[in-house]
Design a protein around this nucleic acid. Sequence first.
DNA 1: GCCTCCATGATCAAGATCGATATCGCCAAC
DNA 2: GTTGGCGATATCGATCTTGATCATGGAGGC
Lengths: 91, 91
Amino acid sequence: MIKIDIANALMQTLPVSKATALQVVDLLTERMKKALLDGDRIEIRGFGVFEPRPRKRGLGRNIKTGQSVEIPKGKSIRFKPGKDLRDIDVE
Amino acid sequence: MIKIDIANALMQTLPVSKATALQVVDLLTERMKKALLDGDRIEIRGFGVFEPRPRKRGLGRNIKTGQSVEIPKGKSIRFKPGKDLRDIDVE
DNA sequence: GCCTCCATGATCAAGATCGATATCGCCAAC
DNA sequence: GTTGGCGATATCGATCTTGATCATGGAGGC
């Protein structure tokens, strides 16, 4: 599933054009990105929680050189699946 | 940021009512949930990728008893932040 | 609809992080 | 205001992450 699929799903349910649907998807992702970059966590009950958290790790590995490289900085965005997504069970 | 905030963001940009905005958010999350439960991965360039992956780990821990409990089965939904979200760097 | 562009995936190694279970409080959702 | 999903906690091992590069494909342009 890619952006277009989501837009199509939106079109199938609401009376919007594909262009508008794409705008919606793009807008929402952009807003979410901004919020996450701002350090704000996004919590959607029943879906999941996006949580920016500081990365404490400071060591990585470079293939080509094989040397340990220090992980410079950073946060990671962690997505914690909500109840509905944790409940998944296949075969 | 919670669902209402996302709906508000949508309202501020597109000419939709709050009720419609909420419908949109709810619809999209639901569709994404279904896709993920279906084993489909969701890839949005510049935002991130939701990928259902089988959990290979088989060990957990029970607080009250302190005993190792086998992690039954299931998948986890992994969210891999896209380029824009990985680029974050605070102080 | 097809082509082009650039982001994404996989890889190797080492070390840190996550996950699951259970309970209570809190806040998201209705 | 009510309901119930979610956070935190603890332990221990497996998974993930980070970096660079090539190939694939998401996404946008014509």
